[in-house]
């Protein structure tokens, strides 16, 4: 097996789609927040909350989809807090977001230790099982990659379509897009800028939490400290890479994940000659490079990070 032939293996692409799934959810979430004009650096912490909330609900007997809902609600709650602090109060979105990440992460760890005081290896749950789509899963390579995944992965793809539809084809989507560009125009339409933005941040945060929930309910079957491991920050880069568009963001997430899956395999191949840490660095380096590459033509929402106060210019 050599570096090139790996690319044509179905298992690589199946892994890529699996790795991409949490990124798709969280990138969509960040995209919704930023489209409404609010940078949400709480993403890393909100993903941690989602990972824990969904998992602990299932551990206590809830069925898997209830767990998913619990995760989304927990994420939305932190989104409301971030929204309240940054929209009506207009606090620095940078500092508040970091604060939300610190708060969400530490509350999660506290709750984990309260719930499981003495465990050395965290308890496991029965996670989502892969669901083969009839007929389609028989297509070579593509079938293995796309149609033998868990339901949460399918949900991620559906979410992209739904978010794109809502953003570009519905009045509320138009309002969200406009409020991120020119809040005064939305105000002139008689729509409350504050509620619209806070609502978008809450919904976006729910998506981020789903990204976290994917980790504990589909990718792994348990909750670990530091399991989000910078994925949230990578998603912020992916939003820029995708020029704030759901479809491009999806493409970016899959490309990124394919690269990640590729480096994992390359690591086994070249691990004897190169330190494994170099491979683990690649995703983060790639994110920075993507930010630089896109910076020149980034069509970021013009009111991003600018608080709106009625009557102020």
């Amino acid at each position: 097996m050599d570096g090139i032939s790996i690319i044509f293996e179905a298992s690589l692409w199946a892994a890529a789609i699996r790795i991409a799934s949490p990124l798709i959810f969280a990138t969509l979430g960040e995209l919704i927040c930023e489209r409404a004009g609010v940078l949400n650096l709480g993403i890393e912490g909100i993903m941690t909350v989602g990972a824990f909330a969904g998992w602990v609900a299932v551990y206590h007997g809830a069925d898997l989809w209830t767990g998913v809902a619990v995760a989304a609600l927990a994420g939305a709650a932190f989104g409301l807090l971030h929204g309240f602090l940054t929209v009506p109060l207009g606090l620095s979105q940078h500092v508040t977001g970091i604060g939300i990440t610190l708060l969400a992460t530490s509350l999660t760890y506290y709750a984990y230790r309260i719930a499981f005081p003495e465990v050395t290896s965290p308890p496991k749950i029965q996670t989502f099982a892969p669901l083969e789509v009839p007929v389609l899963s028989q297509i070579p390579i593509l079938g293995d990659a796309l149609f033998r995944q868990t339901p949460l992965t399918y949900l991620a793809f559906v979410a992209v379509i739904v978010v794109a539809y809502v953003l570009y084809r519905t009045p509320i989507g138009l309002a969200v897009r406009t409020v991120g560009e020119n809040p005064a125009a939305v105000e002139a339409q008689g729509i409350d800028v504050t509620w619209l933005r806070v609502g978008a941040v809450a919904v976006g945060s729910a998506f981020m939490a789903l990204g976290g929930a994917f980790l504990t309910m589909s990718a792994f079957n348990s909750f670990y400290f530091d399991m989000v491991n910078g994925r949230g920050w990578i998603c912020i880069a992916l939003v820029v890479f995708g020029s704030w568009r759901p479809g491009k963001a999806l493409l970016g997430a899959i490309l990124f994940a394919a690269f990640d899956a590729y480096q994992l395999r390359l690591q086994q191949l070249a691990g004897a000659y190169l330190p494994y840490q170099l491979f683990l660095m690649l995703p983060y380096i790639l994110s920075i490079l993507a930010l630089i590459a896109m910076s020149r033509r980034a069509g970021y929402p013009r009111a991003l990070m600018i608080p709106y106060r009625k009557g102020e210019r």
């Binding site: 602090l85 508040t96 970091i98 604060g99 610190l102 708060l103 530490s106 760890y109 506290y110 005081p117």
Partner: peptide, 23 residues
């Protein structure tokens, strides 16, 4: 016997309250 992560929560809360109060 209360988990020491309580300190992390307090510190994060202090940060968010502080930014709010400075407003």
């Amino acid at each position: 016997g209360v988990p020491n992560y309580i300190a992390n929560v307090m510190v994060a809360t202090a940060l968010l309250t502080m930014v709010t109060a400075m407003l």
